[in-house]
Amino acid sequence: MFSSRGPSLRELTVQALSSVERGYDLLAPKFDHTPFRTPDGIIDATAETLAGLGPFGTGLDVCCGTGAGLTVLREVCRGPITGVDFSAGMLAQARRHHPQATFVRADVRALPFDRSFDLAVSFGALGHFLPSERPALFEGVHRALRPGGLFAFAIGEPPPVTSIAHWMLLGFDGVMRVRNAVWRPPFVMYYRTTPIRALEKDLTAAGFTVGTQPLAALGRRRDGTPNCWLVLARRSR
């Protein structure tokens, strides 16, 4: 799963027993050499799709981590791009990769922006928010966008119940729930708390007009269902 430049088992254990913020501060220098980083295929497919919907002016990467989403913004935005995250360690890595971008350290459940961006993206972050926390996140993104602005993020189709992947994700979430029941501080990271219909409902409640588009470059399952969708949430006013 990990390259020789990735974290050791001991380092991962220390991270998993930390808070989300502290855990990512520790993981940041080696994060790009783990499977947790959003794959380049998703980044490239998202950039290709958004290029057909743009160009855009200013861009915001929500929970930017080491800056994978800023690669997309750099391709499709004509104006300044900004990354926001609450991990100082992740932001330090992102600055190294994207020196032309602006970075803000903040809790994205209380984004400090008002009608500042034309496009917002996010990659691999939604599992770090409990369902009860999503409204504050989505309302903040809505507030950060200008009227007509777009919030885009990729979401994978859940693996079928007959697949190994389904049971691996179920097991991971189960382990995390046990860990958080017996250990403090909690480390919120769940793979099965973000079904697309629930996300659409929360986005609509936050004021977005929501649509989806298959990321065709990532292929389809045997039943014809796309492997991955791009959620497109637009602020209408």
Rank of each mutant, 00 (worst) to 15 (best):
residue 146 R to C: 05
residue 154 A to T: 04
residue 156 G to L: 05
residue 208 F to S: 00
residue 211 G to N: 04
residue 56 F to N: 03
residue 24 Y to I: 15
residue 55 P to K: 06
residue 153 F to M: 05
residue 52 G to L: 14
residue 144 A to C: 02
residue 99 P to W: 10
residue 157 E to D: 12
residue 229 W to K: 08
residue 117 F to Y: 13
residue 26 L to C: 15
residue 25 D to Y: 03
residue 130 L to F: 09
residue 9 L to D: 10
residue 146 R to N: 11
residue 110 A to R: 12
residue 60 L to C: 00
residue 120 A to N: 01
residue 179 R to Q: 06
residue 51 A to N: 14
residue 217 A to M: 14
residue 75 E to Y: 08
residue 119 L to W: 00
residue 35 P to I: 15
residue 206 A to D: 00
residue 49 T to R: 15
residue 218 L to D: 03
residue 147 P to F: 08
residue 220 R to V: 10
residue 47 A to Q: 03
residue 121 V to M: 05
residue 69 G to V: 02
residue 130 L to H: 11
residue 90 M to C: 10
residue 57 G to S: 06
residue 9 L to A: 11
residue 58 T to L: 15
residue 140 G to N: 02
residue 198 A to S: 15
residue 150 L to M: 03
residue 10 R to W: 15
residue 148 G to K: 04
residue 120 A to C: 05
residue 221 R to D: 07
residue 156 G to A: 08
residue 70 L to G: 00
residue 49 T to G: 13
residue 169 L to M: 13
residue 216 A to E: 15
residue 50 L to G: 04
residue 216 A to L: 14
residue 26 L to Q: 14
residue 111 L to A: 07
residue 236 S to A: 13
residue 22 R to Y: 12
residue 52 G to Y: 13
residue 75 E to P: 00
residue 65 G to E: 11
residue 60 L to R: 00
residue 195 P to M: 12
residue 124 G to I: 05
residue 44 D to L: 10
residue 82 T to H: 11
residue 166 H to M: 05
residue 171 G to S: 12
residue 214 P to I: 05
residue 128 H to I: 03
residue 45 A to N: 06
residue 103 F to N: 00
residue 147 P to S: 06
residue 4 S to C: 08
residue 98 H to I: 10
residue 67 G to L: 05
residue 2 F to W: 10
residue 223 D to N: 06
residue 210 V to L: 07
residue 33 H to K: 08
residue 131 P to H: 07
residue 213 Q to A: 15
residue 62 V to D: 01
residue 64 C to E: 01
residue 7 P to H: 06
residue 29 P to V: 15
residue 94 A to R: 02
residue 4 S to D: 11
residue 230 L to R: 06
residue 111 L to P: 02
residue 141 V to G: 02
residue 116 S to H: 13
residue 27 L to D: 01
residue 212 T to N: 12
residue 121 V to P: 01
residue 112 P to A: 12
residue 122 S to K: 03
residue 237 R to H: 15
residue 204 T to I: 03
residue 12 L to D: 08
residue 188 V to N: 10
residue 11 E to A: 14
residue 59 G to R: 09
residue 11 E to N: 13
residue 206 A to L: 01
residue 136 A to N: 01
residue 53 L to H: 07
residue 109 R to M: 04
residue 191 Y to M: 09
residue 91 L to S: 01
residue 9 L to R: 11
residue 116 S to E: 14
residue 15 Q to V: 14
residue 166 H to S: 11
residue 155 I to K: 11
residue 13 T to K: 10
residue 187 F to S: 09
residue 182 V to L: 12
residue 82 T to E: 10
residue 58 T to P: 08
residue 82 T to R: 11
residue 84 V to C: 04
residue 167 W to Q: 09
residue 203 L to K: 04
residue 181 A to I: 09
residue 93 Q to P: 07
residue 182 V to I: 09
residue 30 K to I: 03
residue 143 R to M: 01
residue 55 P to V: 03
residue 107 D to H: 12
residue 179 R to Y: 10
residue 4 S to Y: 12
residue 92 A to S: 14
residue 30 K to N: 07
residue 141 V to T: 01
residue 89 G to Y: 08
residue 93 Q to F: 11
residue 70 L to P: 00
residue 189 M to T: 15
residue 2 F to P: 04
residue 99 P to Y: 01
residue 125 A to W: 07
residue 164 I to A: 13
residue 55 P to L: 02
residue 101 A to W: 07
residue 145 L to W: 02
residue 198 A to I: 14
residue 219 G to Q: 07
residue 212 T to V: 12
residue 170 L to S: 14
residue 192 R to S: 07
